[in-house]
Amino acid sequence: MSAVLEVNGLKTHFFTRAGVVKAVDGVDFSVSSGEIMGLVGESGSGKSITGFSILGLIDSPGRIVEGSVKFDGTEIADAREEALKQLRGNRIAMIFQDPMMTLNPVLRIDTQMIEAILAHEKIDRATARERCRDALGLVGIPSPEERLNAYPHQLSGGMRQRVAIAIAFLNRPRLIIADEPTTALDVTIQAQIIHEAQKLTRQTGTAMIWITHDLAVVAGLADRISVMYAGRIVEQGETDDVIDRPRHPYTVGLLGSVPSANKRGQRLYQIEGMTPNMLALPQGCAFAPRCTRASDECKTAPPIQKSGGSRIRCFHPFGEGGRA
């Protein structure tokens, strides 16, 4: 499998009045076609900004300050807006978190779908409309022809997210960045959406980055998982390795906080402390102040260590099987 996307040393900083926020601070990963990579982290860990950086959708005062984003072998981190526009929605598509907000409330579904095709292809509206109808059918929307004429408010949240997914798949992209696409949905709808997304990536060979804060979601969905903390990836590996044999103390903590993994009546594990203030990150490992295993060594930034298929950023990782 060839890498569709390779991200190396990506740094996206926001230059605010209060100081520089290093939202993404040296992120590396790659995704191959047909592969789903889970990008996991708490709110503010920089996972969404990573997604937006790939598409060049970072607004002032933020910008990519360093690093490379290679899409199909072409560098796009410093690409011009016009070149990026041709990629967006065409070769790289994005799905957003809140389906209530992502569709324009005053435009009909067909308008919003057809324009996505016409922005990239010179075909007549009727053909484009047909393709939109087929795409709606593909994501499991009943009577797609009628839905095309509907306005977003006439559809449920789950339906709207299906529409957003249909829009993402419209132009057969090589890569889809899904930014918490199921967070705002009911659990049953969540499972359906995940199922549809998984089916479509397998069918079309599309690569996918699934951004979420919910390890349980990616555990069953992703091929590989990257765990982000304070702008950096702290652990990266095959899903089974990361879930069953977490090495980084943060990943161990995250997994410990998943209620379903715990026995009834047992106290739920919490990671001590709070997510760090992005304006004043601690020296060295950002997780050190909350880490039970931290030592003086952690005041310098830990290098990336490889062990097995995983890459971790920690001086004191847990051993195989999550034990010291």
Partner: peptide, 8 residues
């Protein structure tokens, strides 16, 4: 933002 992500 979604419209921009569509490449419009």
């Amino acid at each position: 933002k979604f419209a921009r992500a569509k490449g419009l």
